[in-house]
Amino acid sequence: MSVAVRVIPCLDVKDGRVVKGVNFVDLRDAGDPVEMARVYDAEGADELCFLDITASSDSRETTYDVVSRTAEQVFIPLTVGGGVRTVADVDRLLRAGADKVAMVTAAIERPQVMAEIADRFGSQVLVLSIDARRNADQPSGFEVTTHGGRRSAGLDAVKWARRGCDLGVGEILLNSMDADGTRAGFDLEMLAAVRAVCTVPLVASGGAGTVADFAPAVDAGADAVLAASVFHFGDLAIGQVKQALRAEGQPVR
């Protein structure tokens, strides 16, 4: 037997509420994050991910509160991302009950912060979240973006993933900004390209539309699969995704 492919629902949280929209625009309200977390736990989610998509400083207290209330009630791992900048931010989130933190922008602005966090808390708490899209100008054909895909970071996504691993991150969350919200399937080529240079777990994100989309992501090298809107709006259930993975010979819980 081997470790199961993790199926992770991601809750985009704004001001303490879950939101998710096609390509990060036109947000729709899909409920209370703590309630959603309980439902996903009961449905068999292997982990939960909260992304604080506003992450303005005045909404941060709300996020800590949501994390804390979730950790009180849900006994599966919880990753929190969005606005995480410093060792102190990580410390506070872990104390609130997060098991892992995901970084996007702060890691780009000052890569050394990844090493600082890994040294202090261990690699296993740190997820490097990469919002990437296709760009033929980069050597790998994929570039890193920030601000929900609106800006280019001027970095090659595959090289950036490798850099994160070298600096001690414990997991890569690879989100295709091209596929995000399209429900047309994960970007398999991008997953394979990052898998080839990283030995840490790789989480596929962006593009899940049907149950058939998940197994190919695992075949391309993903250790876990993450999706948001297909779960929030009831198009797919966690159990259906696991059933489809199992049918393709992948181990699931």
Partner: peptide, 11 residues
């Protein structure tokens, strides 16, 4: 192992 950390649900 090939992928480390060992992260996830195992038997």
């Amino acid at each position: 192992a090939k992928v480390v950390p060992h992260m996830g649900w195992n038997t």
